[in-house]
Amino acid sequence: MSIKLENISYTYMQGTPFERNALDDVSVTIEKGEFVAIIGHTGSGKSTLVQHLNGLLKPSTGKAFINDVDLDGKGDEVKKAKHSVGMVFQYPEHQIFAETVYEDIAFGPRNKGFSEEEVEKLVKDAMSFVHLDYEEFAQKSPFNLSGGQMRRVAIAGVVAMAPDYLVLDEPSAGLDPMARDVIFEEIINLYKKRDIGVVLVTHSMEEAVRYANRLLVVSDGKIILDDAPKEIFKNHSQKLLDVSMDIPQVFKLAESLRQKGLTLSEDIIDAKSLVAEIKKQRGIK
């Protein structure tokens, strides 16, 4: 079970004076069960890359496969393969259209052909995943909710399709830190509970490190680094600097503490775990 991209290049507006090469010979395989973060600057090609993961964009050259099904083909098998990838776009609340929260979340599962009973169960599950109370919200109009709530409705609409892979394009953009933490907590829960593959697009290194077990660094339409976050920070910090990205402050701090003689474990991912580790080393409760 995997999504595989082989030598994919993509050019926007091919054959016009506005032509722009957004992806350049990219190959990558994403297994089910992985939590992959894709990081890169604005305009580096992250969104273009992930839109190839379920055949929304047709590569200019190269091939894309989901579970060994070639996405270039037609027919039910291809359709089914594409539907196994749930895609949460940037600002997903802008795609909400139905009169009630229930109807909007039910749109995907219904298209996938589930029966009404199944749909109801999927909607309920999805709403509990994103912490929206079914009784309170199901019959409300989605357009009267707050920005953060609307985004959770949109994410629930994708989660309800019971995807094998979940792709999220900057799901935290434009949210306050609290709403952001809530959404990531929901994604992590989903990942752990359903054993799906998650692809998280972000431009925040902190987010990437905190949640992912594999990091793809994209620059100028190419994947320039592909490894566990820790390994990348340890071995390739110069390459990150070259594309003007930096390793997170906590990692730098931990590294200089190590050089000063403190033995810290390799598992530090954020300020909280660093504090805990220092306390442990120093025997402070």
Binding site: N54, H83, M87, P92, H94, Q95, F107, N111, V158
Partner: peptide, 16 residues
């Protein structure tokens, strides 16, 4: 651009 984005989003949700 907006139409393109929305169409893609709904296609990803199985709209035909």
């Amino acid at each position: 651009g907006e139409t393109d984005r929305i169409m893609k989003a709904q296609t990803a949700r199985g709209a035909d």
